[in-house]
């Protein structure tokens, strides 16, 4: 864990090391994708690397998130994903059959997402220097008509919509990796979201911003917006869908489902006027059947995300730090 778990340490790394080194107007918003002007064409551009242990898990393998993650990062900017690059770093000794399975699922995922893999690279590293397969993908997309999405547009009064239950992917991976078996069945939610996004934007193009709550979970996505935009976020704890299996597993493991990773969910910040239409559009799509309005953006308590708990208090939802540090003295 440490710098890699999508919490405060990662945020610090980005803001103190990376942003100062490369500062430019396209990087600056630190959205999931950058909008670039390439010879007159406005393109969405993103990249992501995938390290998943284990490679195979209920609901998929590393191949799907490698495609869907990048597709989703483009989609969150209101882009239609078109092309992907694919770079593989293979550890010596990896079984060919395993690699074939991963490639097959990459192909399937790309087809399902309507993107083509148009360039790539392969490297092999010595045994012990990698974790079977590392995948990097970069993606290019074009803007969907009428959409203009950026975290900078998020404003007090926005409704916050979530496309479905949180925590499925993260808990699935953990249960496999740690050999921890839980009562209820849990499956990864990995899915390409561009179709859901297209349906949403068609119903209401005025969506302010979207995030896919991957590493660091829903909490990270919300804290990031609250922190960067100096706005408050209020979430109604009961309104956030969490599957029973995930809830139970999180209780046992001492994890907060709000900080566990998702691979097929989106959070949308929508002006109140379009909130109901947007929610209806999400719910009518197969990937958004469990969509819910979970809270709103407020001008009060800038920088803080609060959870209204069933007994009425407003618990402060903090960014995960990287690893669990007990606070009860």
């Amino acid at each position: 864990m440490g710098h890699g778990s999508g919490g405060k340490l990662t945020a610090r790394l980005v803001e103190q090391l990376l942003l100062p080194a490369f500062r430019n107007p396209m990087l600056e918003p630190l959205d999931d994708q950058a909008w670039v002007d390439a010879g007159g064409a406005r393109l969405a551009f993103t990249t992501d690397s995938y390290v998943v242990t284990p490679l195979f898990f209920p609901g998929g393998d590393i191949g799907e998130p490698a495609v869907n993650g990048t597709v989703n990062d483009l989609a969150m900017g209101g882009a239609r994903p078109l092309f992907l690059s694919l770079a593989l770093i293979l550890e010596e000794g990896l079984a060919l059959s395993e690699l074939e399975r991963v490639i097959a699922s990459i192909r399937r995922a790309a087809e399902a997402a309507g993107v083509q893999v148009v360039t790539g690279d392969t490297k092999v590293v010595d045994r012990g220097k990698g974790d079977k397969v590392f995948v990097n993908t970069a993606g290019i997309g074009v803007a969907l008509p009428g959409a203009e999405l950026s975290s900078r547009r998020v404003a007090a009064g926005d409704a916050i919509l979530l496309s479905g239950a949180v925590g499925d992917h993260g808990v699935t991976i953990l249960s496999q990796r740690e050999g921890l078996a839980f009562g209820g069945e849990v499956r990864s939610d990995t899915a390409p979201l561009h179709g859901l996004v297209a349906a949403l934007l068609e119903a209401f193009p005025g969506v302010h911003a979207m995030r896919d709550p991957t590493r660091g979970g829903l909490a990270s996505a919300l804290c990031e917006i609250a922190g960067r935009r100096r706005l408050g976020v209020e979430v109604d704890e009961r309104a956030v869908p969490v599957h029973d299996g995930v809830r139970g597993a999180c209780e046992l493991l001492g994890l907060d489902p709000f900080v566990v990773a998702n691979e097929g969910k989106l959070v949308a910040f929508v002006p109140e006027a379009g909130a109901e239409r947007a929610l209806a559009a999400l719910r009518s799509h197969p990937l958004g059947r469990e969509a819910a309005r979970i809270g709103r953006v407020v001008a009060e308590h800038p920088g803080f995300v609060t959870l209204r708990t069933p007994i009425g208090g407003q618990r402060i939802l903090d960014l995960p730090y990287g690893e669990s540090l007990p606070r009860i003295c």
């Binding site: 740690e178 050999g179 921890l180 839980f182 009562g183 046992l252 493991l253 001492g254 994890l255 669990s324």
Partner: peptide, 24 residues
């Protein structure tokens, strides 16, 4: 028993099980 077994695995695997020196 399943819960005890799970917690045992967490303890041994060090999963979300930070080390604590506290007398409390």
């Amino acid at each position: 028993p399943a819960e005890v077994e799970l917690v045992r695995r967490m303890i041994r695997g060090g999963f979300n099980s930070p080390l604590a020196h506290g007398a409390g």
